[in-house]
Design a protein around this nucleic acid. Sequence first.
DNA 1: ATTATATTTAGACTTACCATAAGTACGGGA
DNA 2: TCCCGTACTTATGGTAAGTCTAAATATAAT
Lengths: 137, 137
Amino acid sequence: MDKEKLNYYKSLGIKLTPQRLAILEFLEGNKEHPSAEDIYKAIKIRFPSMSFATVYNTLEVLLSKGIVKEILIDGSKRRFDPDVSPHHHFICKKCGKIIDVKCKYDIYLPEELKDCEIEDYQLVFYGYCKDCKKSRT
Amino acid sequence: MDKEKLNYYKSLGIKLTPQRLAILEFLEGNKEHPSAEDIYKAIKIRFPSMSFATVYNTLEVLLSKGIVKEILIDGSKRRFDPDVSPHHHFICKKCGKIIDVKCKYDIYLPEELKDCEIEDYQLVFYGYCKDCKKSRT
DNA sequence: ATTATATTTAGACTTACCATAAGTACGGGA
DNA sequence: TCCCGTACTTATGGTAAGTCTAAATATAAT
């Protein structure tokens, strides 16, 4: 990881432990929208002593700092996305694969929410991916 | 519940037990986007013998018949919506309240998903509702 | 005879707890 | 200025517990 990024993380007041660096490196540029378990399994290879709690703790920190984003799309588990730029997602109902959607849509503030403070919005497409579409009965 | 609806449910091949009727009545016109627990608690008053599993079983049946829809919006639990007409949602990050958004947006099929079979899409707004907006520090 | 219910059990995912360990900031000495 | 110990703060690891959901099975209802 380059020095600039390191300093950026430090400037946010994050204590950079080897485990956290490993998690950050794993997430950097990752397009798989991993779950906590995905992260845990991947890091465990290099850090056999890694604990599941550490993964969750670190994710909580990264979420609070806006370094990663949680995507509410998979009912069965939390998914995380290191790409915090505005974009949308598709999830396959069969295999759970998530695909980024970079389209821009013209989403105006709905009348029903005029008294609310909107921080973000996400568009989610549900269906079947290229591979699962074929193999469906 | 009126007879027309009853016959409609019957025509779908759903066996209408007292518990299921209670769940259907509770859901009918319900704008609270209840969780399984909300439903369980509400029905338990009239059916003390009601089981949690029955709630899940019934919801599973109603989902498969398209009578209710699951909304993936609350990371901590499943939420259900008896309004299956196309619409969107807002969720308050603080109190968890969900508000319906009936606006129509022009959502075209994104290039990234041209090989996928899209069944549905949902737009979700995140932020703070009228009440929680004030009380934030 | 088929299907739903109630109850219990089990599983997956996540959070809480606490003693131990490690990172960071600071200040004195080279 | 740079290096290095010291003290303070925070993170880790392991486990235990909590929550939500799904499975299994015997009983009851249709």
